[in-house]
Design a protein around this nucleic acid. Structure first.
Lengths: 188, 188, 188, 188
DNA sequence: TGGTAATCGAGACGGTACGTCCCGTCTTAAG
DNA sequence: CTTAAGACGGGACGTACCGTCTCGATTACCA
């Protein structure tokens, strides 16, 4: 409420520093102290605007997700799902977003801010991206399943892969997941 | 030539202390220093046998999983899967195993020991528990899906739930997941 | 550009704690950790301002020496020397200065900071105290000797006594040393 | 009293290792643990025969001193004293004896074993070496001084030099000290 | 436009834990 | 029964960050 004179310049410098450090050192080696040094900011300035490390990176993640382009639509539901998944994977792999999300998931195991954010963040940032294609696929498909439940499952699999083998987030996995949802390809 | 003669008494005291502290403070507030203090051990004794905090808790998790009873078999595949899932959930909820696994998943985001262990550990400790029922369900069911892929998906969903809302690991979720795998109940 | 703003209060508390611990436990049982605990300070605060244990005690010794009163002057050179030596001995015996100096001498065997300091410290803190009386005694005496060389010798004997039998630093020794320098008393 | 089966081989290996480590690392970096490793001995074996690090090095010092040759006698007392001092200095400088003695002096500031030994050790090992020349010099000289007191002083100066500037233990110092005792050279 | 108050960098501070070293005691297995 | 080997409880080391705090030096709003 009293966030009156928050300098956008400073805030941006801090978020940029955070992104750079995650890239260089990884999320868990990224400290508030290091971000402050890198940003040329005082620690207090960071603590003034963000309550904790997870809070800072939640905001960073939101910024990164906001830049994510929405995938195009295709006539073929399977193809649309596949392309969308591949785009999501590329975003996680090519930017720091993947490393940040992985760190936030780790934090969510004990940090309330991260846990709360990770749920709602996905709603605005990413969930809708997948939900559209899933709904169209469900409508067109022969199997009956709830798009929301399938979304949960896909997100879970993506997270698990992000944690255990981030390099596996590639086009092949996109195809495999689409098949898992819609049945094998020769399902003409 | 001569083996490292490690005192079984001490090892057990340390693992017990680790389990107790996870219960009291949670995984992330559990420190090597604290475990040593609680166990009446020197820190060096811990570092002698375990390279890091994740390494220690991997061993603890193995012990906990070893005590897990195998679920009974049922004629009805759906019921067997449901009961097995419920048993797994109860093990995660009623013992420290859930908290330890959650911590190890968090560590796996940046620690190689945890990442490697979490894959193979599950193989021996937990994966087979679910794989049997899944295979029997697949054989009996009308839908065609690979039990191994379905297992991956189930594990992913369990992990995600363990992280975001551990209390949701209950019988209702077991039923929901069985339905997700085998189709709705009214599938007579 | 900006000076390190060190809190005088904290510095004093740390030096006081160091002095108290030397008194209680002796120099070699006095640890940085213990000083920090006693002073209610963080270890880092000590390491921030002093590079090592010897560096800390060098500063403490300077403080102690600064409080040492300069001995009075007497018409009789022998008496002046004797009284001055006795005063120096009392300072070493009655305050922690003796214990600190003994510890610093021990450190000087392997620590460069202690070695360097112990030379220059004495120059400002103690050497002049003895040099004046020695010069006047040399001028008045019949024997010819260099006050500077005699000072070295006296300091050496004092150190050796401080190490091997600190209790022997008393008035009797002051008289014996004065005699050693100026010849026997019955030298009318 | 119960030193029944002390193996001379083992003992010698330990003392040799101690000497080697002092040479390599310096006295204060020389640990019982390191000596045991180097000697291929168990720590217990060392503690069985020596109560502490100082006790071990006191024995090593005795061995080193025992090998010290007694200086030759000269007609000129000044020359005899000078040559003897130079020989003593060379022994301290060329062998580990100097480093060991320096360490023992440091230990003597707080260790009773070292303190006691350093007094009596010198009696047998070194004190007599200087006392003979001093007595002859006193008898031949014109000044009256007690050889024992002069010895104390010389020892003190040697120690102080050994601690503060070991490299200064050379022939020039031997000449200076002889002059301090016997008066300037042109004192014919 | 000049005063004044919040914000800034810098980093000191009390703490906690890290992972390492060595202490002196102990336990074990081989000789 | 003595070894070597080294595990053990313990204490201190010196370092890294935590989150709070105190400084002057900007900076930006308001009178």
């Amino acid at each position: 409420m009293s966030e009156r004179r928050r300098s956008p310049t400073r805030q941006q410098a801090i978020l940029d520093a955070a992104a750079a450090l995650v890239e260089e050192l990884g999320y868990e080696n990224c400290t508030i102290e290091g971000v402050a040094r890198r940003a040329g900011a005082g620690k207090q300035t960071i603590y003034r605007w963000w309550a904790s490390k997870p809070a800072l990176f939640v905001e960073l993640y939101q910024l990164l997700v906001a830049r994510e382009a929405v995938a195009a639509r295709y006539a073929d539901p399977r193809r649309e799902l596949e392309v969308t998944l591949a785009a999501v994977f590329r975003h996680l792999t090519d930017t720091v977003a993947g490393a940040v999300l992985r760190g936030l998931i780790a934090d969510a195991t004990h940090d309330e801010v991260a846990r709360a954010a990770i749920n709602s963040e996905l709603v605005f940032g990413r969930r809708d991206i997948l939900l559209g294609p899933l709904r169209r696929a469900a409508a067109a498909g022969t199997r009956d399943w709830a798009p929301e439940e399938m979304l949960e499952m896909l997100v879970a699999v993506i997270w698990k892969t992000l944690i255990l083998e981030p390099d596996a987030l590639n086009d092949a996995l996109a195809a495999r997941l689409a098949a898992l949802v819609l049945g094998p390809v020769d399902d003409s």
